[in-house]
């Protein structure tokens, strides 16, 4: 008798498993068709790095070398020279070797002026690793076409259609919760 009970128990358990599988049939699939449908990427997502320029087209970067020092894989190479007109430095060369970049965003974190930022631009697979060695013109170009980017210092920024740059509302900010709550308390 106990044998029969065991067999029945096994059959019942198998039936439960099969029911669990069958329950999924009606549910909609979660598949995304990548080249046809682009995934939605949160603005903070570290997909690529870019150099942002000011609205007037000048570099935000002040050549402080902080990012070069902070990079764990040491892939940033900066050469600077004294600014002929005025104080400070200007960039001569800003190379970033994406082959070895870990996308850790340490460089973005230390940048005092949010010149180097993370963007959600992820379609950069290439056939030749050498094509992943980026120079300043390339990083600028990515920055120019970025509509949304993130840096811890300024938060998420958006480029308006007229070209002006603005901070995104707190709903879009990755760390926006405290800000929202503070706003509520103030109101």
């Amino acid at each position: 008798m106990s044998l029969l009970a065991e067999v029945w128990e096994a059959v019942r358990a198998i039936g439960q498993g099969m029911a669990a599988v069958n329950r999924r049939v009606g549910e909609s699939a979660v598949t995304e068709f990548y080249p046809y449908q682009k995934p939605e990427i949160p603005p903070v997502s570290v997909q690529f790095l870019a150099l942002i320029q000011n609205e007037d087209g000048s570099d935000r970067c002040v050549s402080c070398l902080a990012c070069e020092r902070a990079c764990p894989s040491q892939v940033i190479t900066i050469e600077r020279k004294r600014n002929p007109a005025g104080k400070g430095f200007v960039l001569e060369r800003f190379d970033l070797d994406f082959v070895n970049c870990m996308h850790c965003a340490n460089c973005v974190e230390v940048c005092p002026v949010s010149a180097i930022v993370t963007v959600g631009d992820f379609e950069h697979a290439v056939y030749d690793v050498n094509m992943l060695k980026a120079d300043k013109a390339f990083l600028d170009e990515i920055g120019r076409r970025a509509q949304v980017w993130y840096s811890p210092k300024f938060g998420v920024e958006i480029r308006k259609p007229d070209g002006s740059i603005e901070k995104a509302p707190p709903e879009m900010q990755p760390g926006g919760l405290a800000e929202l709550l503070a706003g509520e308390e103030g109101a």
Binding site: Q173, P174, G175, G176, L177, A178
Partner: peptide, 10 residues
Amino acid sequence: VRRDVHPDFF
């Protein structure tokens, strides 16, 4: 942690 959480996080 590096930054506060997203408003929708909780």
